[in-house]
């Protein structure tokens, strides 16, 4: 079997990512469910690059012409989903910032400060 340079590069990249993920898991930054989810995604990436014929099999099952099309469609869908999740998280954080800012604003008004100084 002839190895393509891209397969080697992707594998090295995936190994590095998995290494980082396990480190984050050990440091309690990632939850078990998150670790499992990410490992599954990267395993799929490895399978797609090393056994491209599997995507063709899945593609015909789903009614898509070529395996590579399926890979691209899935990647785009996943990216959109991740952006959506990221957006919701960002929105939540914005709301939390507002809560803090409001709490600080209400905890000391200019009149409170004047009273203290008198």
């Amino acid at each position: 079997m002839v190895y393509l340079p891209l397969q080697i590069i992707v594998t090295i990249f995936v190994v590095l990512v998995v290494f980082r993920l396990t480190k984050k898991y050990k440091d309690n930054i990632l939850k078990t469910s998150e670790l499992v989810g990410w490992l599954m995604i990267w395993t799929v990436v490895l399978v797609v690059f090393w056994l491209p014929q599997t995507t063709s099999y899945l593609a015909t099952l789903l009614g898509i012409g070529r395996g590579v099309d399926l890979a691209v469609y899935s990647a785009v869908l996943m990216i959109f989903y991740l952006i959506f999740r990221l957006y919701l998280k960002l929105d939540k954080q914005q709301k939390e910032i507002t809560k803090i800012v409001r709490h600080l604003a209400l905890s000391e008004t200019n009149e409170d400060k004047e009273q203290k100084s008198n």
């Binding site: 507002t98 409001r102 604003a105 008004t109 200019n110």
Partner: peptide, 24 residues
């Protein structure tokens, strides 16, 4: 009476801060 948001949060946020003070 002046309430100060340390960073800009938007008009809705400022109104709610004012409403909270009014409620209290």
């Amino acid at each position: 009476l002046v309430l100060k948001h340390l960073v800009n949060r938007g008009m809705g946020a400022a109104l709610e801060t004012g409403d909270r003070l009014a409620r209290s």
